[in-house]
Design a protein around this nucleic acid. Structure first.
Length: 315
DNA sequence: AAGGTGTACAACCGCCTGGAA
DNA sequence: ATTCCAGGCGGTTGTACACCT
């Protein structure tokens, strides 16, 4: 049967969100937490589709999102993960918790694809390393698919490690994969999802970021501090830790840091550490380095960063 | 200076999936 | 076992801004 639209087409507002709408949404989520999106429009009075609310939150308002330029490391990571996983933007973005899948996707489409095209002379208009073997054919058995997924995971780990290692001296690279990766695996990791990287929860929630956002918007009682949003702001990004930006139709409101404690009431545990490449990356590290014995098909010695995308298709 | 073109990114659309009833 | 629903995902579009001629 035809699925009914997620919300009434009549009376549903579309297009760019206004600061007021954002404020209402953030305020609601502060009180109730994200989720139950269907109820959000009715409870908040927003004339928006529930999906639109969720998207606005996850792609833009959610705390912990870093906006602005991608770093070289992030870029490399995206390129390699795309080569490994295909256009599974959500999966790729999970390795970049400060980035949304939409951001990653957009960045790929606008920057990286073109870049790779230019680099490879690929004229197929796609430029993306196609992941021919990474989509499970419909006929694939579950076991096959799981094995493939596990291989994806292992390769992604390696790509991530390669991409991150130059950034900081993480750990001496264990020589576990010196061509001799035994498929021997611990029972816990075989065919199981990878441990979530640091802060790879449903969303990266840091009280500080939310506080900043809300504080900058003059709080939840509808009083907006000072100027209208859209005031052109500085070039700082949230990653500086000193301000957050929220832009509206080209304008940018610089949100001041908050004094604050936890803003979200449901935040009962310490927020996952924001994924910052300058940070120790302990969870990722442990994931990468402690469980690196499961490469069934290691990419031979060549660094993934130097390898052509096709080198990944060894499956 | 004005118009055209390209770029970046927010947002929408439709399909898919997992879980609850 | 089946149906329904909410949420998630990837593809695509719309629009504002930047750059070029």
């Amino acid at each position: 049967m035809a699925r009914p639209p997620c919300c009434d087409k009549e009376g549903v507002k579309k297009g760019p969100w206004t600061p007021e709408e954002d404020l209402v949404l953030v305020s609601y989520i502060q009180d109730h937490g994200p989720g139950n999106w269907r109820a959000v429009p009715t409870r908040t009075g927003l004339m928006r589709c529930s999906k639109s609310c969720r998207l606005r939150w996850t792609n833009y308002l959610r705390p912990g999102i870093r906006r602005g330029n991608f770093t070289e490391q992030e870029e490399k990571l995206i390129v390699h993960l795309q080569a490994l996983l295909g256009n599974r933007w959500a999966a790729i973005a999970s390795y970049l918790p400060e980035r949304t899948d939409n951001d990653v996707k957009n960045y790929w489409n606008t920057h990286l694809k073109r870049k790779l095209q230019a680099g490879s002379g690929d004229g197929d208009g796609d430029g993306a390393a196609k992941p021919p073997a990474h989509r499970p054919p419909p006929s694939n058995s579950k076991g096959q698919w799981e094995r493939r997924l596990q291989t994806d995971i292992n390769l992604a780990r390696r790509a991530l490690r390669e991409a991150l290692t130059p950034l900081g001296d993480l750990k001496p690279q264990p020589q576990r994969d010196g061509g001799g990766d035994s498929p021997a695996s611990t029972s816990s990791s075989q065919c199981s999802p990878p441990p979530a990287p640091a802060a790879a929860g449903p969303y990266v929630l840091t009280a500080d970021t939310v506080s900043r956002m809300l504080d900058g918007w003059a709080g939840l009682n509808g009083k907006r501090r000072g100027g209208a949003p859209g005031t052109p702001g500085g070039a700082e990004t949230a990653s500086t830790g000193s301000s957050s930006e929220v832009s509206y139709g080209g304008g940018t409101a610089v949100v001041a840091p908050a004094a604050g404690g936890p803003v979200f009431e449901y935040e009962t545990k310490p927020p996952a550490a924001p994924f910052q490449l300058m940070m120790p990356l302990s969870a990722i590290e442990s994931w990468l380095f402690d469980d690196d014995t499961h490469f069934h098909r290691p990419v031979q010695s060549a660094s993934l960063l130097d390898a052509a995308p096709m080198d990944y298709y060894l499956l």
